[in-house]
């Protein structure tokens, strides 16, 4: 045990401010263009994302078309910008429900234990015996392609990870002395769970949410690429990468720039996740 030495008497003085971690700061800075593009694509994009221009097909990046044009003469930059909204929406919608549902269920079953825990555990086992992507594809195949069905499919599978994470944390935190102290202080179980255990147990899930968002975008892109997600001509990065695959050698920019956007978004969320992990950890 090491006690950080306080000043000679009383309480240590200066409550040292927590500095924002460089990773978090960088992640947040990188997020800004994505947010702007998602909120106001029309203001940022120089052209329409869907209008064909047969006079300017497969043009290499130039001052007029910084990201070049595709095989229908559409401006790739404008499509990437408009795609941001769709992909950010995918990032949020593929993760929000699993996060909320999985975490709440995890908190509940971890806290109550017994049969509730056992039942949910069996269901979760059932879900995870299938590879994630295969299961999602199967569900989408049954429901039909499209973004809404993709959200449903991902939610049906994605909650398990959050359930696991939060349940494990809650079980662990239930044993801590502060949680037990809360019970002896006569607090109701609801209060012990929501006010004391959950704020401490939710951190890993929040951090995972960030990673999951980048995974969500990639998943949306993969499904788009397979033709099961966003449908053409919706500008979606995955679909765009797929559309450009035949021109990979002659016109790399058609797939290249949406691919870059995908990677950058992934890195951004990961950075934020990393930074949050640091920032949310209580100091000891």
């Amino acid at each position: 045990m090491t006690t950080t030495a306080p000043t000679t008497t009383g309480v240590p003085r200066a409550r040292s401010r927590r500095r924002v971690k460089p990773t978090l700061a960088l992640g947040l800075v990188l997020l800004v263009p994505f947010v702007l593009a998602a909120l106001a694509p029309r203001l940022l994009a120089p052209y329409s994302p869907t209008d064909f221009d047969y006079s300017a097909i497969l043009q290499a990046p130039s001052a007029k078309h910084p990201f070049g044009t595709d095989n229908f003469g559409r401006d790739v930059l404008s499509r990437v910008i408009h795609g941001t909204r769709v992909d950010m929406q995918i990032a949020v919608f593929t993760t929000l429900f699993p996060f909320v549902f999985g975490s709440l269920l995890g908190a509940l079953t971890g806290f109550v234990g017994r049969w509730a825990d056992a039942v949910v555990g069996r269901v979760a086992d059932l879900v995870v015996v299938f590879p994630f992507l295969v299961l999602v594809i199967a569900i989408v195949a049954v429901l039909g392609p499209g973004l809404t069905n993709m959200y449903i499919a991902v939610s049906a599978v994605g909650w398990v990870a959050y359930w696991r994470l939060v349940r494990g944390e809650v079980v662990a935190h239930k044993q801590t002395e502060y949680a037990q102290a809360a019970r002896v202080l006569g607090f109701s179980p609801t209060r012990v769970l929501l006010r004391h255990i959950l704020p401490n147990a939710i951190t890993p899930a929040i951090v995972y949410l960030m990673t999951d968002m980048s995974l969500g975008i990639l998943l949306g892109a993969s499904l788009g690429y397979l033709g099961l997600g966003a449908q053409p001509p919706t500008p979606e990065w995955g679909v765009m990468v797929a559309d450009g695959k035949n021109f990979m050698v002659t016109a790399w920019w058609i797939s290249g720039f949406p691919g870059l956007a995908l990677t950058l978004a992934g890195v951004t969320f990961s950075l934020i996740g990393d930074g949050l992990a640091d920032a949310l950890r209580p100091r000891s």
Partner: peptide
Amino acid sequence: QMIFQDPFSSLNPRMTVGQVLREVLTVH
């Protein structure tokens, strides 16, 4: 009432001392 052994784990790391005491007074 009970007082616990571990001075490092028996307090919720996210609550200030004031919050801890106020919560007890409020709940009861």
